[in-house]
Design a protein around this nucleic acid. Structure first.
Lengths: 225, 225
DNA sequence: GTCGAATGTGAGGTCGCCCTCACGTTCCCG
DNA sequence: CGGGAACGTGAGGGCGACCTCACATTCGAC
């Protein structure tokens, strides 16, 4: 990807949309391969030839469905964003009977597993370079943050509405950073990091949490204020 | 920078070292220009021609002192690492009479200012792509973490030695993430983020801090354990 | 002032990468 | 089974980026 591509096709310019099953699968294979290649060598250094090769198809096919490399990138981002949305809606949604600490821990565990299942994900999510791509990263995290705000509204009764946005941003960005850090270390140490991150967030959010007095689980210590 | 550069000169291969003042200044100008260009368009998309143009010199001169683009990149990383070391040694070092909370706040403020003074810094520090460059980023943060460990040893008496490394890593990575996030937002909102980050770290570190009982500033609540 | 070394220059060689296009293959509908 | 549409292929055009090299300029010691 060269600097001069800056003004290339907007996102998914005029191209065939696959109608047959065969080609739908091919498109999926291309996306999978692209995610792998991006993760391995970086987005800019990834070549369409390498992607096609890994997808076991020809460049011609690749360019039949994607107008250019950028479009492939954005298609992957869209796919990830969709997965993240689903994850949030089905896995991170609050479960009745959980304490908010358990809720946090469970959410982090879910995201941790997601990061580790799809090696491309964590690479794509953060490890790109120029401003244009950072936009996409930020967009995903903003979406995260928006949904986190909703969770805060439900759970963190002691948190004034005006501060919700900042707190949500800080939370999302911290969790992202911790998961990425943890993925960079060996699994054992990575788990320590995740555990420590959980502890940090517990202590951070404690003053914001609604505190129905006299919970049986409580340690007996009083809330900070 | 193409994928095939992977095996290029190790870092600073055989090249003239500047002996005259004129050329020393030129090398500095090239590094400054390169930092700017990297920050603007990303590392991979940056071209040696653009760097030379911004440094108001010719490509020929550039290649007289640097064997290839990678070498320029690593020279910048080394320069930044050096500045960060100095920052840590002279600005983040503990000051007698400060509470540990004040120490944290002051350190973050110093790093915040550093990030904002040198626009290239924050861009370089995180926004690069392929694995090779991530190495360099991680290396800098490991160095940060090592020095933070030393600070923890001095300040966080309640923190067992075995946990120091994880805590230092979590701290460094969190601060990095928060500063980068804050730089992505407009300055006003950015300051809110920094303030919130400080609050988070205060609460996080509280149980680890040495707690000479009966401090006048204390809220009276007992540490979590 | 003289001369050799250090430094500066930029047109152009070379190469890798993006993407096209003309042609071959598979699918599907009646 | 026939024909048209969808799909698949890969050699190669074109372009831009890295880096070289032959030559020009400046520096500094004597």
């Amino acid at each position: 990807m060269k600097a001069s591509d800056r003004e290339a096709a907007p996102a998914g310019a005029a191209r065939k949309v696959p109608t047959q099953d065969r080609s739908k699968q091919r498109v999926e294979r291309i996306l999978d391969a692209a995610a792998d290649v991006f993760a391995e060598v970086g987005i800019e250094a990834a070549t369409t030839e390498a992607i096609a090769a890994k997808a076991e198809t020809s460049i011609g096919s690749l360019y039949q469905f994607f107008p250019n490399k950028k479009a492939i990138f954005y298609a992957i981002v869209a796919r990830y964003a969709e997965r993240v949305r689903e994850l949030f809606d089905y896995e991170v949604a609050p479960i009745a009977g959980r304490t908010w600490q358990e809720q946090i821990d469970a959410s982090i565990d879910v995201l941790y597993a997601f990061h580790h299942v799809d090696a491309g994900f964590r690479a794509i999510l953060r490890n790109w370079s120029s401003g244009e791509f950072l936009e996409a990263d930020d967009a995903i995290n903003r979406e995260f943050a928006r949904r986190t705000e909703a969770l805060l509204e439900a759970h963190a009764k002691a948190l004034p509405a005006a501060k919700r946005r900042v707190v949500a941003e800080v939370l999302v960005e911290t969790v992202s950073a911790m998961l990425i850090l943890s993925a960079r270390r060996d699994p054992e140490h990575g788990k320590l990091i995740v555990a420590e991150a959980k502890a940090m967030l517990h202590r951070y959010l404690e003053p914001y949490s609604a505190r129905p007095r006299g919970r049986p689980k409580g340690t007996g210590k009083k809330p900070a204020k």
